[in-house]
Design a protein around this nucleic acid. Sequence first.
DNA 1: CGCAGTTTTGATTCATCTCAATTTGTGTGG
DNA 2: CCACACAAATTGAGATGAATCAAAACTGCG
Lengths: 256, 256
Amino acid sequence: MTQIKRPDDNVQSQNVVPITLTSLKAACSQCNLRELCLPYGLSETEIAQIDHLVGGRRKVKRGHHLYRAGDPFEAIYAIKMGFFKTDILLEDGRDQVTGFQMAGEILGMDGIGTDVHTCNSIALEDSEICIIPFVQLEQLSREVQALQRHFHQVMSREIVRDHGVMMLLGTMRAEERLAAFLLNLSQRFTARGYSPQEFHLRMTREEIGSYLGLKLETVSRAFSRFQDDDLISVHQKHIRILDAGGLKRLLNHQAP
Amino acid sequence: MTQIKRPDDNVQSQNVVPITLTSLKAACSQCNLRELCLPYGLSETEIAQIDHLVGGRRKVKRGHHLYRAGDPFEAIYAIKMGFFKTDILLEDGRDQVTGFQMAGEILGMDGIGTDVHTCNSIALEDSEICIIPFVQLEQLSREVQALQRHFHQVMSREIVRDHGVMMLLGTMRAEERLAAFLLNLSQRFTARGYSPQEFHLRMTREEIGSYLGLKLETVSRAFSRFQDDDLISVHQKHIRILDAGGLKRLLNHQAP
DNA sequence: CGCAGTTTTGATTCATCTCAATTTGTGTGG
DNA sequence: CCACACAAATTGAGATGAATCAAAACTGCG
């Protein structure tokens, strides 16, 4: 497995935006992601309470870790802007990307169970995250019922998402996996106000392959095939979906 | 996909053990599974509070559903005795087993996110579960910090477990998957006081295959190979692990 | 502008699937 | 209690999708 050489910096002290009144003002209540993020569905007054949750911000440069497997768990993170991957590294050197996360999504819940993070979280582009100290999240969850409920929903959806990936890995063939992946990305970009048809992949073919349980060559071939069939147009990491219906049909039409 | 013909009964009214003082007495505080289940790590007085959580018991006969995808979500379930599988059915007929659950484990958290269950839960042997109405669980979680914390840990561990399955499906070959599966079962049986070496599989080869992303024939062949190599002995659903170290070596030794 | 990393494409190999036949086990009703 | 039908498991032979190995083309970063 090609070990990707990337900056090795995980220092928290630097990069942490200090908490000032002004920075807090710009927290959840002012954030245009709040409909996608933790505060979803809360009232104005409740969101005001949440503002105090955010224990600061942190910029994470492309290729840098937000946290590593083995790091003590202290907080979960909301992505304010940017793009991340999470991966697991086995002792024998095998690794797998377990997910890609974008703005408004929550990172770090893998650490709650054991008080230690169980995967690595790496920025795929220069990013910024909101730090939500977990002790405070639990504290406030005990007071604000809607926050408690929403946090539980976020965790549950992560479980359901993982089941979807298991389905994908367990029953789908290569092209179906890639189609499902592209449609999923498209749908998530749409929810953030970006074009459903056109987007930029922030990950390599190898990372896509790792996530989909395929080799990078297979991913590349599937891209080429989709392009030949006029389902998408590919220019490196630029994707344009030409026939979303065709991709969906690929999914439901179980081949053999 | 062979559709397994099984009883179609999902009626809740029958089979629900009514809540009486005596049945409540026998709830968590008296349950020998409490170290594995939700009340783990709570104090005596806290467990006494939890006792009120259990909104009744329910027996689920082998082959019957505890809940189905699409059912409204109202409660999570703790397995008091027995064995379950969860599975997902896609529109095109493909299905996949997403997990096997045994005594002391929690079922139903997939429903929290959308208020609707997203998978089917089916008993693989005559079983009995404790019903934990979710509204009450959240209510009590707001009062009992240790319960809140533990519930979050249970959910997080489910996420981490799913990541492990993704790893297995994405990077391991057939025999590694089966070895990982057997070692995992062995470890869970051990935690419940059963023999680590010898146990009864409650699922068919097809169900194992579905969970591991393999065809039943491949599972059967892997069993035979393990037996030829004196790693295990197999008699139908009876498994005896002869060389746990050998199985573990199979896992870490990435083949190609 | 050059070089390292990434992507594409081709030829070949291999693990698992598929199809098929047989054996073994299980539950039901006479 | 036995026989029958059906479900589950084993095993073999052949087909196939994805991995592997290899080489060339492209990209963009410094």
